[in-house]
């Protein structure tokens, strides 16, 4: 298969004699961010407010492999199943394209996150402070996988006012976990949260 080099820092090299004369292009690099949280917390809205394409709901198949390595007690008789998943796209520059994946809200599908989480920049965990328990599975998952994440408090009407530290304490979050207050319907607000995630991910990545 004609894969482009996967190692960092190496430019795309064209193969084939007739193509050698063309100017070198920057390597095309896909990136992804996961958007997680409880049911109806605003994941699709968040993806839609940032995406340059209308948010798409697609079907993701769980592979036999991912079923084999994870707890399958929730789907004992199925070798495969499909679940709905939202995604959006941001063309960052001429070579970087960022995909946003809204993870399935139903907890019984958490095991399909493994494939989505592999290689991700990080995750935005949306929380509705009126029902914080809903985001625990997502937080547990990303902490266990050591995937950088930010907690984004989606400010629904009637959201109680708590200081960031109180939110971290209630959710047992490390002190350096960014907490943002945002409105998933507002593109600027969602972008600020996304920037906070990338800053956090960069801080946790050794310079190399």
């Amino acid at each position: 298969m004609d894969f482009a080099p996967a190692e960092a820092g190496r430019g795309r090299r064209r193969r084939g004699g007739s193509q050698l004369a063309t100017a070198p292009e920057p390597a095309l690099i896909p990136l992804k961010v996961l958007v997680a949280g409880g049911f109806a917390v605003g994941k699709t809205t968040f993806v839609g407010s940032l995406s340059e394409i209308p948010p798409v709901t697609t079907e993701q198949e769980m592979t036999a492999l991912s079923i084999g390595v994870d707890d399958t007690s929730a789907v004992p008789d199925k070798r495969t199943t499909t679940v709905a998943m939202d995604f959006g796209r941001i063309t960052v520059d001429s070579s970087l394209i960022l995909y946003l994946f809204g993870t399935p809200g139903q907890n019984r599908f958490w095991f399909m996150w493994d494939e989505l989480a592999r290689g991700a920049v990080g995750a935005v965990v949306l929380v509705d402070l009126r029902r914080v328990d809903d985001c625990f599975p997502a937080i547990d998952y990303f902490e266990n996988r050591r995937l950088p994440f930010v907690l984004a408090v989606n400010q629904f009407p009637g959201t109680p006012e708590f200081a960031d530290d109180a939110v971290r304490e209630a959710l047992v979050l490390p002190a350096d976990t960014p907490v943002t207050r945002m409105d998933a319907r507002e593109p600027r607000s969602s972008l600020t949260t996304l920037v906070a995630l990338v800053e956090h991910a960069l801080m946790r990545t050794p310079v190399g």
Partner: peptide, 9 residues
């Protein structure tokens, strides 16, 4: 882990 490096981030 497959995560992007600092230059790309």
């Amino acid at each position: 882990d497959g995560r992007p490096g600092s230059e790309i981030l």
